[in-house]
Design a protein around this nucleic acid. Structure first.
Length: 453
RNA sequence: GUGAAUGUAGCUCAGCUGGUUAGAGCGCUGGAUUGUGGUUCCAGAGGUCGCCGGUUCGAACCCGGUCUUUCACCCCA
């Protein structure tokens, strides 16, 4: 046997039945996005590396897929660089493009580039694949689809509220039980300010995040390991152990952060959001979680993350507010807030929980059996009329045994098979077999249309 | 990037302490049924046991390397 073909690590093919379900997810989020007034855009799969590099931290730079320059790309590289064995240096010489890592950074670039063609506040949605050179594992792929909704050019917290409504509606429609965890970067900054370690906020949140897994003592050990003094760890304890309802937590935080202006601003923001949500009948759980520290590279205000309650798979949606989204591309003071639905993880969740509605893969309603050239031409005329009536029909392309043609219809889930042989042609009738009941009838064209419609 | 596990027919897997010709179920092809699928019965095709090397009289099985897939950590959707 020939060498088996394969596809790159972390990528996947999708069979028709999988695509039916994937499209169900895409269609659902798209419809919800549109309901709230978002418009679609697309950006290229590849961006200039200068657009991508430095936006996701050192870790992110490593996970970028780089594209080799075309042609004889080594010709003009100077020998020092070639022999230096410095991948980073060489990379900038031989690669100037990369595959996009997310949809947010390309979107920021897009906004700057097309600022005169769009109206602010600009609400857009974007459903496209992104690529990360991560090591694949459960729920993690190297090529996956994100469904982003963002609004740029508005500071209003109503946008955050709207995004939460969207999350609520999407998961309500998909029938997935989720919890939306949120936090605010300003509160995290406030905490760091109070403790007196403004540069350690990432370490602190990462450590606190492990509370459930490893317990308070290990968390404190880890904090100490990160170079935070015992005294400061002591100050952190009430924050780590914060519990109760969202409003309980907010009350306690107000006390703790009383001396931090930025911290209090964060509290005001989340209080305003929670207040607005109260009157909106949000179904999903919304929970303030101080250990949420995702994407600290650019988030400045709200941070969101959604987890499925019934499947262990990491977050299926995430996002937040970035006050200076477009700043790196030269457009100052444009704030953005957005979230991203991870379609592939949502698929995995729904698949595991059997949440996909029964949808027929078959787009064909009627298969016309092929009895030979003469009969086939006769069928084509009938089929044309049916297609004009909006009925999906197909003719078996080869004049082979009935068994084979029936089998094809069965496997494809086609509900009706039409057989028109010599007798039917003479009588101007049609033999229709219902593949579900097994019942077969000899009828005239009008009856047939009624039967099949 | 770090640490583990895995790889046998198209698919899911069995294969004893190393022993001749590597098996099953499902699927596939053909037939029972030349105008009838999904059920049943009969027959058949299909494998350089991931790849390379080593140990051995002898390797699917033991050893080394390599690749693949999966899982955990880091990070993330």
């Amino acid at each position: 046997m020939a060498q088996k073909p394969s596809i790159p690590k972390g990528t996947r093919d999708f069979l028709p039945h999988e695509m039916v379900n994937r499209n169900y997810i895409f269609d659902t989020v798209r419809k919800v996005f549109q309901k709230y007034g978002y418009l679609p855009i697309e950006t290229p799969a590849m961006e200039n590396l200068s657009t991508l590099l430095g936006k996701y931290g050192d870790e992110g730079d490593k996970l970028l897929f780089k594209i080799l320059n075309s042609g004889d790309y080594l010709r003009d590289v100077n020998d020092d660089v070639l022999t230096s064995r410095d991948s980073f240096k060489l990379m900038s010489e031989i690669s100037e493009k990369g595959l996009r890592y997310d949809l947010t950074v390309p979107f920021a670039r897009f906004v700057v580039q097309h600022q005169n063609e769009i109206v602010l506040p600009f609400k857009r949605y974007q459903i496209q694949p992104v690529w990360r050179a991560d090591r694949p594992q459960k729920g993690r792929y190297r090529e996956f689809f994100q469904c982003d909704v963002d609004v740029v050019g508005s500071n209003s917290l109503l946008n955050e509220v709207e995004l939460i409504q969207i999350v609520d509606e999407v998961y309500k429609q998909l029938n997935i039980r989720v919890v939306l965890k949120f936090n605010n970067r300003k509160i995290l900054s406030g905490i760091a300010e109070i403790i007196g370690v403004p540069d350690k906020i990432v370490d602190i949140t990462v450590a606190i995040d492990k509370l459930d897994k490893i317990g308070i003592e290990k968390v404190n050990e880890e904090l100490e390991l990160k170079g935070i003094s015992k005294e400061k760890i002591g100050k952190l304890q009430p924050i780590i152990l914060l519990s109760g309802s969202n409003s309980d937590k907010i009350e306690q935080l107000k006390q703790i952060l009383a001396q931090s202006i930025i911290g209090l601003r964060g509290i005001e923001e989340i209080s305003a959001i929670i207040l607005a949500l109260k009157s909106l009948d949000i179904v999903i759980d919304v929970e303030l979680d101080l250990t949420l520290a995702r994407g600290l590279n650019y988030y400045t205000g709200a941070i969101f993350e959604v987890k499925a309650k019934d499947v262990e798979i990491g977050s299926i949606t995430g996002g937040g507010r970035y006050d200076d989204l477009t700043g790196v591309f030269g457009l100052k003071d444009v704030s953005g807030v957005g979230i991203s639905f991870g379609a592939d993880r949502i698929y995995d969740v729904m698949n595991q929980l059997n949440l996909f509605p029964l949808q027929s893969e078959a787009t064909t309603k009627v298969l016309f059996a092929n009895f030979g050239e003469k009969e086939a031409f006769y069928c084509l005329k009938i089929m044309k009329e049916m297609r004009n009536c909006g009925i999906n029909v197909e003719l078996y392309p080869d004049s082979v045994k009935m068994k084979k043609q029936m089998n094809y219809a069965d496997k494809k889930g086609i509900p009706f098979v039409v057989m028109i042989g010599e007798n039917e042609m003479i009588e101007s009738k049609i033999s229709v077999k219902n593949m579900i009941t097994g019942e077969q009838k000899l009828v005239c064209f009008d009856e047939f249309i009624d039967l099949v419609k």
